[in-house]
């Protein structure tokens, strides 16, 4: 594989794992606009551990995951006190603080960044991406996944159904932290260099967009989003600013035409029914997941 191609594959793997880190919280209805902060923690943890030789061999990677998971766990408590716009801004502010601390601490090389001694081959990145994807698919198919999707739709009813909403939310922030941290550690080892400026607000914005444009309804969403936004610009051979213009136009159009994201549950059901040959499936006859709001509204008025 040429250096160019393997670079793209590496970025794809890193973006994918990172996107899953943001996805698990989004699947539970929490928008994390501070993804870069978690990724930076993983990257710098791996870089420092590797430089200082505190962990043997590739122990840096699990260690970085644990550290960023711990940060995700701890930050979940204050962040979960907030809602809506406040949560978006709290996670955003968190990432800015992380980047500020990194820039000002000499252990982390300040604005110069850090060289990471141990180089990681591409095969490890691919393996990690595959394992992460399988893990998230498994998670979303489990009762845990069902519970967080219920929280996404209606926290109050999920609580009455016995779901520990707060506990689940803390857990997804922890898992999200671990995955973003993993992507950061892989980044540090593959590119052998980290600098705080890389983990900027744009990165947080992009990864959230990968997830939202891909679709939050299924674990296919982040996969589609990362593939689309990493490979399409390469395939079209567009670089530099045009890439971002195309990205922006895609986002605006997607939000206008298909705001639920590229991959939806209905789409998955339609595809799987092609294989299972279940023509009676009512999923086929329904264009899209739309509740009959008028009915619910009537109930509301009735309540008053």
């Amino acid at each position: 594989m040429s250096g160019y191609a393997s670079g793209i594959v590496a970025i794809l793997c890193i973006n994918l794992i990172f996107a899953y880190g943001v996805y698990v919280t989004a699947a539970a209805g929490q928008l994390n606009l501070g993804g870069a902060g978690y990724q930076a923690i993983g990257a710098y943890a791996a870089a420092v551990l590797s430089t200082q030789g505190w962990t043997p061999g590739w122990g840096t990677i699990p260690a970085a995951m644990i550290i960023s998971a711990l940060v995700g766990f701890l930050i979940a408590f204050p962040v979960l006190r907030t809602r809506g716009v406040y949560m978006v801004l709290a996670t955003f502010a968190f990432a800015q603080v992380v980047s500020g601390v990194l820039l000002r601490t000499s252990l982390f090389g300040g604005a110069i960044g850090m060289v990471v001694p141990d180089y990681l081959p591409l095969s490890v990145l691919i393996l990690a991406a595959v394992l992460t994807t399988l893990f998230v698919f498994f998670l979303m198919a489990s009762r845990f996944g069902l519970a967080i999707r219920a929280i996404h739709d209606d926290e109050a009813v999920a609580t009455i159904m016995g779901v520990d909403v707060r506990g689940m939310q803390v857990t997804v922030f922890t898992i999200g932290g671990a995955l973003a941290g993993l992507s950061g550690a892989l980044y540090a080892h593959y590119f052998s260099f980290v600098e705080a400026q890389y983990f900027n607000p744009n990165l947080s914005i992009f990864v959230l967009l990968f997830v939202l444009i891909g679709g939050t309804q299924t674990a296919w969403g982040p996969l589609a989003g990362s593939l689309f936004f990493t490979l399409i610009p390469e395939a079209l051979r567009i670089g530099g600013s045009w890439r971002f213009v195309v990205f922006g136009v895609t986002i605006v159009l997607m939000m206008a035409i298909r705001p639920e994201g590229m991959i939806t549950r209905t789409l998955i059901a339609r595809i799987s029914s092609l294989f299972h040959r279940r023509p009676s499936s009512s999923a086929l006859s329904l264009p899209n997941a739309r509740p009959d709001l008028p009915d619910a509204r009537m109930g509301d008025q009735h309540a008053k």
């Binding site: 914005i205 967009l209 939202l212 971002f244 213009v245 990205f247 922006g248 986002i251």
Partner: peptide, 13 residues
């Protein structure tokens, strides 16, 4: 999300 898209479009244009 749309407004983030516009941010990218305007800046890069």
């Amino acid at each position: 999300v749309s407004s983030l898209g516009f941010l990218l479009i305007f800046e890069n244009l």
